[in-house]
Nucleic acid binder design. Sequence first.
DNA 1: CTCCCGGTGCGTACAGTGTTCGCGTCATTG
DNA 2: CAATGACGCGAACACTGTACGCACCGGGAG
Lengths: 242, 242
Amino acid sequence: MADDQVISSVWARPEKARNARPTLSREQIVAEAIRLLDAEGVDALSMRKLGQALNAGATSLYRHVANKDQLLELVVDEIYGELRVPVLDDPAEWRPAVRALAHEMREMILRHPWVAPILGLVGSSYLGPNVSRLTDEMLGLLEDAGFALEEGNGAVKALFAYVIGWTTSEAAWLLALARSGQTEEQWLEQMRPAMEHAMESHPRLARLYKAQREARPNLNIPQDEFDYGLDRFLDGMHPTRP
Amino acid sequence: MADDQVISSVWARPEKARNARPTLSREQIVAEAIRLLDAEGVDALSMRKLGQALNAGATSLYRHVANKDQLLELVVDEIYGELRVPVLDDPAEWRPAVRALAHEMREMILRHPWVAPILGLVGSSYLGPNVSRLTDEMLGLLEDAGFALEEGNGAVKALFAYVIGWTTSEAAWLLALARSGQTEEQWLEQMRPAMEHAMESHPRLARLYKAQREARPNLNIPQDEFDYGLDRFLDGMHPTRP
DNA sequence: CTCCCGGTGCGTACAGTGTTCGCGTCATTG
DNA sequence: CAATGACGCGAACACTGTACGCACCGGGAG
């Protein structure tokens, strides 16, 4: 609980100039944290384990990172760095570009499922370099397509909210499934009694699950459902100056 | 880590019939947990504190609740119980009804800001009674309006994803602000150097923040931005059989 | 009635967690 | 060469979730 005067974000000031031998650096710590998170999940990331993985004492990390929270902020920005906003030859092609970025973002999150819940916590007041670059480039893309600046901002925020909200659930499901060590079929079988019970008084849910069970083998339901919402959103967007 | 055979959700089986004196009950525990969470936030909820608030030992709770995770699942479903899906006289009026529910959901989350991150984690496989009722009623509303069942499902999931993703950021901002004990103006002033730095190489962000700073006193920006994305999404939705 | 037995409360204990403090050490600068 | 700061880190603190085992008590069986 850093209730000092210094509550400003990580990005307020650059890292202290490090002149001594850099056996341990902020970048190194962030990189190793991501490796650990990818390998063992968010519950497995403790400062002690991270220190051990870096051949360092646990408390040494605090020379380079104020907090575990701050470390996670740095990690999030690093992950955002995996995304690239395309540069368009024809500004009118904004729609497939936005759609592609949403897909890229979903895939990025599914590559690092632990990141989804953290992403939601960093809000609009987040000023990491990669997040700033990303939103600025998105604003540019939309502005070139004829969207007013405030409107583009609304669109970017809405897009991020949708992708994050959606993938948070999806990632949580995938993580739970992985932890259980079961296949999807086994898991669903185990949920069966709870489902049947829920169906009894909810006829539409019952019909829905029945329909999905029959259709399942043939298609990628999560991807399709993600695209459905995404496309409805894109359908609703129109540049003010076309 | 309940890696037993019994990984099925809380709702698989009803609570064990309790015949002895019910000095402690599941409902009581859930209710008190919500009181504590509303009062002191999610970090303050520990099993020991919760037990103390109930004049009980910490470990007594485990007779009624398997896990802290399960407790949070129960809490989430209880909170969902605050939402009501309107019954429409005219099925064609689906749009304002969906819009109103999104607003209601946002307000519910802002009433319990700690719930936002947890909401994201409970995915589509969540079968609490209130969640089941809510989605079933939403499906009914949309089906009456002419949406096919699978399409209604996509719409409901997309709507929830958007609202949750959006409000998670908003709630995190409000919580951080509250913890800091500062006013919004003070906070923004403190962020100033970080912002200025981010602006230097990001001209569109700079213009955006300048415009927002000038407009701010007059309007409720979060509400408006929330509505912007919501309306774009609703604009994109059309019943298959009108 | 007695017996007993399952559900309940809870004290203790364990293996962790994030983080503070103060000490020793080392490289670089004056 | 001396000193000044940054750095690494061992120990300690105040917590956390939860497993275990014991005590108790109410109600049904014999």
